[in-house]
Amino acid sequence: MDGEDLKLVKNIMEKVKKSGDPDTVLFDTPTTQIAKTNFFILKGLLELKGKKGYFVSLDRPHQNMSYLLQNHDISQENIWYIDAVSHMSGSKRIGKKNVEENVDFVDNTFQIEEFVEFFKEKGVKRKNFGSLEDIDFILIDNVFPILNYNNIEKIQEFLSSFEELIASHENLFGLIVMNSNSHDNLDRIIKRHVKTVIDVKKLKEDA
């Protein structure tokens, strides 16, 4: 990470702070920068802010993010992964990476509307992640790939319940990452369910 990247991380954190608690925030970023944006958000939340939360992998196996954090010496003590894509990743190698064991694998990628129930009931019953009251954020890595597995109605249902979940927990931030140019309809729907949109490309230009 160079100085520009670090400044962007700080700018992102500044924006998240300004948006006010509790809140659901959309990070609008170019598709090619989604993985990096997720990493920057996590670096800011875990390292700069000392927050604790879930990282929901819908786009690529959680091991990649875990590996990135490990490679950049960012502690993963306060992150729990909910991985819905590894079961479709097709790689033997992913299991060989030396990463933390803080993960729940879910295989109902095609039933996105059930995810919020997973957060509430089945999710994380280990360590100090006992309930949603114990955490500060839920970050969804990229909403767009959900369209590969679910129709728009199911996604709408998921977003409604996700917004309600966040609104009913004062301690929680809901963070969603997507390129708003990926899909007009999905973009419109998401923007109805978030309070704040952060334009990461603009923040980068300002950094």
């Binding site: 090619t32 993985a35 786009d59 690529r60 196996p61 990649n64 990743s89 790689s91 190698r93 992913i94």
Partner: peptide
């Protein structure tokens, strides 16, 4: 096989 899967799993 492993290389191409590795590359596919990165963004």
């Amino acid at each position: 096989f492993e290389l191409i899967n590795l590359l596919k799993n990165w963004q």
